[in-house]
């Protein structure tokens, strides 16, 4: 909290603190990368930096249907869920931040409740309902709960973004002869695009990350996502020791996250902080 101190010593102090944070954040990730690059022989040597490097683990997983199929499922399910959640969330957030209608407070309350909802409480009933309706072990069977839990996130983040757009702009559009829909399409939507994009990233990360629903509501490769497939690599017969393969798969599904974080750090921070804390 050196409010006034900006000298070289302060810089050194902050530099050290920064280094601690970076190390703290990166070590587990680098460790998995390291494991994924180790040869079978050196896998259990306990060294943080591999002594022998190989890409065999990556070659191996991309040859197995188990992983490739799971990757397709993960990508497909996360993208579709994100798309739907963001579209529905945008509509609702726009209404919440801009329009006056009875039931608005209720909707805000419901989404808040869902944000706090223990997902595991839904696992048993959804398991049974989905088995009866044939949604079990299908893409829609996962997409539905993902949308549900992503919606509160989307609604909060987007309302915060919408509220930053001056209300006068919309009034002005109406005065200029626009209908409500035209005002939205021509004035608000272009301005909201960055917020929508940020929200999409956050929602995608959420869907990409899920494990509980994915493991409870799937049973075969048909709709299993990568996090679940990872846990099934353990003891699977086709690998003697799954550690290398798991690590390689783990690295693969971490890549999109790293890319998001690298390119959109500012937006993600803005999205998380604006949506979550406004009280």
């Amino acid at each position: 909290m050196a409010t006034l101190d900006t000298g070289p010593r302060a810089k050194l102090k902050w530099g050290l603190l920064d280094a601690v944070v970076v190390v703290f954040a990166l070590i587990p990730v680098l460790w998995v990368v390291s494991l994924s690059l180790k040869t079978t022989a050196t896998l259990t040597d306990g060294n943080f930096i591999p002594r022998e490097w190989t890409l065999d683990n990556y070659r191996l997983i991309f040859q197995t249907d188990q992983f490739v199929r799971a990757l397709i499922n993960s990508i497909g399910i996360a993208l579709i869920s994100t798309l739907i959640a963001v579209v529905l969330g945008t509509m609702a957030a726009y209404a919440i931040s801009r329009l006056d209608f009875p039931g608005k407070a209720l909707l805000v309350g419901v989404s808040l409740l869902i944000a706090m909802f223990p997902q595991v409480s839904l696992v048993s009933p959804l398991f049974n309902i989905e088995r009866q309706t044939g949604l079990f072990d299908t893409w829609p069977g996962l997409i539905l709960p993902y949308i549900t839990f992503a919606l509160p996130l989307a609604i909060y983040t987007l309302s915060a973004f919408f509220k930053q757009i001056p209300w006068d702009l919309e009034k002005a559009a109406k005065m200029d002869g626009a209908t409500q829909a035209e005002a939205f399409r021509k004035v608000i939507a272009p301005l909201a695009a960055p917020g929508v994009f940020t929200t999409a990233i956050l929602v995608f990360i959420f869907c990409w990350n899920d494990f509980l629903f994915a493991i409870s509501l799937t049973s075969t490769e048909q709709s299993r996502t990568v996090p679940v497939a990872l846990s099934f690599f353990t003891g699977a017969s086709q690998f003697e020791d799954p550690t290398g393969a798991i690590s390689a798969a783990a690295v693969v599904i971490t890549i999109p996250i790293i890319l998001f974080v690298l390119f959109f750090q500012k937006r993600i921070v803005a999205g998380l902080t604006s949506g979550a804390v406004k009280g």
Binding site: G15, D18, V29, N209, F211, I253, I268
Partner: peptide, 21 residues
């Protein structure tokens, strides 16, 4: 004072990474 972007980016990695990984 220095490396604010770097710190924030690094800190986001644990947030974004798949828990299972």
């Amino acid at each position: 004072l220095i490396g604010r972007g770097l710190v924030r980016t690094s800190a986001l990695i644990p947030y974004g990474i798949v828990t299972v990984v």
